[in-house]
Amino acid sequence: MFTPRTPRIVAARRLQRRRDRDQAGRFLAEGPQAVREALAAGVVLELFGTPAGLDRHAELTAQAPEVSPVTEEALEALAETVSPQGLVALCEQVNVPIAEALAKSPKLVAVVAEIRDPGNAGTILRTADAAGAGAVIFAGDAVDPYNGKCVRASAGSLFHVDVVRAPLDVLDLLQDSGLQVLATSGTGSDDVDSLLDGGLLSAPTAWLFGSEAHGLSDGLLQKADRRVRVPIYGGAESLNLAAAAAVCLYASARAQR
């Protein structure tokens, strides 16, 4: 049984650092939900689990290409949550080149531009998946989609949509492929409801989201086809990023269906 000092546990634990994830092209998926989706996507290389965890989720254990029982201490070393659920999978990254993603002619795309918060990024990934988006693009110096918190916040959606890493100048490619680019801004001249009522959201669309603290740069706002705000009808100062993204993506989903 593997312990925290077993070389394979030591090597896997290094994947908690972005530099090591990027070099290895691998990451860790923690918990039965993430493991289930990773197995369905065919990206699991090895499943680490405590004897109790492997027994409790025997249907997942049976699907793994390689199973390695570990001690409770070893699992705690691999996990990043306070109360790990007994399973951690070593997975291959699922990056999709931008050209390949756009060749599928997605009708809905979410672009997270230089977003640093992994919880927000993972929640947007999950929401984009639920709204039927074909791709989520992590543009510029954005958070790593394989950050442990981002993987957990995506609740398995990381494995359902095309995950693309691209430079900030990706907007030209999106527009050239026939997508209208809508940049979210609290001071946008258009609002989501008016675009929905006017039928403009039925067109293939890429929604562009910036960081919650700083928003989108002036350069990105100017290159977008429209600058769009979420209308506030009550007394709230604003919505947080993930909530605003849900409003925008579901408005498009409704119009496109």
Rank of each mutant, 00 (worst) to 15 (best):
A40P: 01
E30S: 00
A12N: 08
R19K: 09
P97N: 07
Q63L: 14
A40W: 00
S83C: 10
E76T: 14
V88T: 08
T50C: 07
P84Y: 03
R19F: 13
V70I: 12
I9F: 12
R26F: 06
F48M: 11
G86F: 04
F48E: 07
T61A: 12
A62G: 06
E59F: 04
Q23Y: 14
A34I: 07
V67Q: 11
S68I: 10
P65I: 10
E76I: 13
V10A: 15
I9S: 08
L39C: 09
R18F: 05
A58N: 07
S83W: 15
T81V: 14
E73Y: 04
A12Q: 08
A52E: 13
T71L: 12
S83I: 13
E66W: 15
A52Q: 13
L45T: 02
A58C: 00
T61M: 13
A29H: 05
G53H: 09
L39F: 05
F27D: 07
E73W: 03
D22P: 12
H57L: 09
E92C: 05
T81M: 11
T61I: 07
T50V: 03
Q23C: 05
L47N: 02
T71A: 04
V67N: 12
L28T: 01
S83H: 14
T71V: 09
R26Q: 02
V94C: 04
G42E: 05
P32K: 08
V70A: 13
L39T: 03
L45K: 03
L39P: 03
R18D: 11
E30N: 10
A79D: 11
V35E: 02
L45W: 01
V10Q: 15
A41G: 00
L54K: 14
L28S: 09
E37T: 06
Q63C: 12
P65A: 13
V10K: 12
V44E: 01
V82G: 04
S83G: 10
L75Q: 08
A79C: 14
Q85R: 13
V88A: 05
L15S: 04
V82F: 13
G86I: 01
A79R: 11
V35Q: 06
V10S: 13
R14M: 05
L75C: 10
V96A: 00
Q23S: 12
E80P: 03
V88Q: 01
P97H: 04
E72M: 09
V10G: 12
T81A: 15
L90V: 09
E92S: 10
A40I: 00
A62Q: 10
L45G: 00
V94M: 04
Q16E: 09
V96Q: 01
V44C: 08
S83Y: 15
E37Q: 07
A40S: 08
N95T: 10
R17Y: 04
